[in-house]
Design a protein around this nucleic acid. Sequence first.
DNA 1: CTAGACTGTTATATCTTATATCATTCATCA
DNA 2: TGATGAATGATATAAGATATAACAGTCTAG
Lengths: 140, 140
Amino acid sequence: MQDPLARYPGYVLRRASAAALAKLNERLEPLHLRHADVALLMLIDAQPGVSQSQAGRILDIQRANMVPFIARLEKQGLIERQQIDGRSRALQLTPNGQSILTQARQRVDDYEMALLNQVPASLRAHVLPILMALWGDSAP
Amino acid sequence: MQDPLARYPGYVLRRASAAALAKLNERLEPLHLRHADVALLMLIDAQPGVSQSQAGRILDIQRANMVPFIARLEKQGLIERQQIDGRSRALQLTPNGQSILTQARQRVDDYEMALLNQVPASLRAHVLPILMALWGDSAP
DNA sequence: CTAGACTGTTATATCTTATATCATTCATCA
DNA sequence: TGATGAATGATATAAGATATAACAGTCTAG
């Protein structure tokens, strides 16, 4: 037996996540994006005008960490901020952000397809339900 | 729909892993251990005398990062190193390390049980096979 | 015996995540 | 209406995890 921890779902969950994440970042590297960037772009695309703090809550990124994160994507010309009221700022994709997201989405879809195809066809339908269940209470 | 990314297995995999890891670290905090510490202790327990670099390869921790990692556990009196030959060093648990590991294992088992119980009973048998498949080629 | 590979180590850099604090602005309700 | 408490964005800072490059000593295969 090579890795005696392979019997523990929690451990395998962590290893699977790390391995998958590395593959995704590899695919996104040509677009100069990381997985978290694409997650935010996709969220903004699905909910245009979402506020910075709302986005942080949905993606589980703390307010303080959103600031440099958002700033970088804004600097790259992918998103823009509009003042909603005195405190909140609405996030929107720029045309360039839309374009980049389209390319990113293609790569994400390829990645998700490859990931699912690693699972035997007979089990494939159970993947998402099981992962959602493991995600647990904080899942949407 | 709250989180439009919840349809992507890869994304949910990452979120599930992060949520589970936080819970595990919470359970291990009273023992002043982190999840990676316990993984190493369990590995050494299962393969006494494993070398530092072997352990790193199995747990996917790079050689350079093993050094401070091992040093800390040695300083805590949980493991000890013995020179195998001129370069390799065999890792072993100290009696204290054994004792702490017993307590940690109880907490890990509780955690793994709670994690599995989040999954509907009818799907539970598929959890490990699916996670192993998602882990992919690098899995043991 | 020698060339190449392996081990542990040091130093360093980056990314991610977390905490604490602040000023401003909004919402509530007495 | 006016005051209190909560929310937002921001800043600074810290800690943890992960990655790369380089080095000296050691082993192994040819």
